[in-house]
Design a protein around this nucleic acid. Sequence first.
DNA 1: TTTAAAAATCTTAAATTTAAGATATATCAT
DNA 2: ATGATATATCTTAAATTTAAGATTTTTAAA
Lengths: 162, 162
Amino acid sequence: MGKESGTTGPVADTIAAAPTEQDAALKLLVVLSKAYKTVMDKAVKDMKQRGLSPSEFTILELLYNKGRVPLQQIGQKILVTSGSVTYNIDKLEGKSLIRRVPSPDDRRVVFAELTDQGLALLRRIFPEHAAAVQAIMAGLGYEEQLQATKLLKQLGKTAEQP
Amino acid sequence: MGKESGTTGPVADTIAAAPTEQDAALKLLVVLSKAYKTVMDKAVKDMKQRGLSPSEFTILELLYNKGRVPLQQIGQKILVTSGSVTYNIDKLEGKSLIRRVPSPDDRRVVFAELTDQGLALLRRIFPEHAAAVQAIMAGLGYEEQLQATKLLKQLGKTAEQP
DNA sequence: TTTAAAAATCTTAAATTTAAGATATATCAT
DNA sequence: ATGATATATCTTAAATTTAAGATTTTTAAA
């Protein structure tokens, strides 16, 4: 038996040779998953301490940055289904952190926007959260973070398959 | 009003200056999330076409690569809770793709291992899936994939906070 | 040995997400 | 205007995940 070779499969029993193209892709998927979950676990812990689920927090953050946003765009931005948007917007509205505002131009459209209370909350919470995220990402130096961002952006941009 | 500046926040109204350290960290989190979800969406689509949920598939893949694995280690490897492991192992056992094997050494421990049927399935499915993953990751070239893997591994390795 | 603490699996209920379809409105070509 | 198609939100049920705690077994100390 050869030495451990990560998640590369029953084949890879060579001595630290360069991975094949396919192995590189498979390994990237594994590492991406693990990094995402590890990082998210910590970020989520920070969010929950503030009484918000990750989806709730992400929506609030979006509204904080963008102002008034149609529900549909929220789903597109944070990549969840319309059902999930409705569910979370309901919860946030129940907490009086956001409000629904019907569009005057298009009666199908409903905007979400922060209430004064929601804005006040974010003004207080966001800097703390940002500091927490900074700490979470400290495994990479500044330049490495920029590099990772560039690569991940490129990876995420792969054309949608219709 | 300044030009669009991504998700950097209400502050960033400078002209494409270098992001602050905190902005770099926040942006990395956003880009990591999006890349993960975009990539996973496609990988999951591939898995579901084969009648398996992502968790089921990931567990099968793990057993395919590692052989007999204690349930607890499965949870650690794929980063889900023990409840989720039980749920998915039950489903896979129901499909006769894996079987539970009690450890002879430690009666608390239960191994999961592929059945002949499960092994046959993976031998057929895995190469196709690997090809799909390769296509999904094609947004990055080979060297870029290695680089991304290195960075993500480093990022995911941040020490656990007790 | 008895006890205390740790570890592994499972159970249960609640939380969350998705998938599919329903409804209302808008757009566009007739 | 009419009708067809597309879009936006919501509803519902099912699937999945988590959180918390129960049970069993192991380990180590007294």
